[in-house]
Computed example of a mutant assay.
Amino acid sequence: MRTRITTAGILAALALTLTACSSEEEPTVDNKPSKISAEDKAKAREAAGLPPEPDEAARKAFLDALNAIDPRIIKPGKEDQAVSRGLNQCSSIKDSDDREKLARLALGRFTIDTRLPELNTPETGQKIVDAVHKHLCPDF
């Protein structure tokens, strides 16, 4: 009797072997992965060139500044997204002194270039960059 070995058979056997040998458990409802500490998050943010999370006052001041530029910049119910995009803009501010480039990046990052073409101007971009810099990363 001849035994025929197929690629599919080899892959199935390999998959079973690897699954059986795995030392890591898959996360389940009962087996939640450990949470990342605040200190580790802060270190990761710093390594990525991002400032720390803003406190409530800085967050409110930033959102108010965006609303003063134009209330449509922040999508309804997406304040966290706007803050996240602002923090990402901080990494660009940290890495570049080119104000025109920073303005273009801000317009794209806040999707103004695609959502709000009437606001897609260098002036609007500069205002956003100024708001980000002032409220989220003044040390950059």
Rank of each mutant, 00 (worst) to 15 (best):
E53Y: 10
T28E: 03
K78L: 14
A38E: 08
A42V: 00
A42R: 11
L87H: 02
R59A: 13
P51T: 07
V29A: 14
C90N: 07
A57S: 13
A68F: 04
D30I: 03
E39C: 00
G49R: 05
E100I: 04
S92G: 10
P27W: 01
I69C: 04
N31V: 11
A38M: 04
E79A: 14
S34A: 15
L66N: 06
K60R: 15
I36C: 04
D98C: 04
A44Y: 03
G86E: 04
I69N: 02
I73E: 02
K60L: 13
E24F: 11
S84M: 14
S84D: 15
L87A: 04
D55H: 09
S96H: 09
A61L: 11
P71G: 13
D70T: 02
K35C: 03
D97K: 14
S84T: 12
G86H: 00
R59Y: 08
K32P: 08
E26A: 13
S84E: 15
L66E: 09
K75T: 07
K75Q: 15
D70W: 03
D70N: 15
E39H: 00
E56W: 07
K35V: 10
S84G: 15
L66P: 11
A65D: 15
N31K: 12
C90Y: 08
N31P: 00
A48F: 02
N31M: 05
K41G: 02
L50D: 08
E79N: 13
A57H: 10
S22F: 01
S96L: 06
P51A: 08
D97V: 04
A44S: 09
G49I: 07
P33W: 02
D98Q: 06
P76T: 04
A42Q: 07
T28P: 01
D70V: 02
P52S: 10
D95R: 14
S91N: 04
D80P: 05
A44P: 03
E53D: 15
A61K: 11
R85W: 03
I73A: 05
A48W: 01
K35M: 11
E24A: 11
L66A: 10
V83W: 01
I73V: 04
P33F: 00
K60N: 12
A20C: 06
S23L: 12
N31F: 05
D98K: 09
E53R: 10
I74D: 05
S92A: 12
E100Q: 14
A68Q: 12
G86P: 01
K43Y: 00
G49Q: 07
D80S: 12
P76H: 03
P27G: 01
L66V: 06
P33Y: 01
K32D: 03
V83A: 06
P51H: 05
N88R: 09
K101P: 01
A38W: 00
C90R: 07
S92Q: 13
N88W: 06
E24I: 08
A20D: 05
K32F: 00
A61C: 09
G77F: 04
E46N: 08
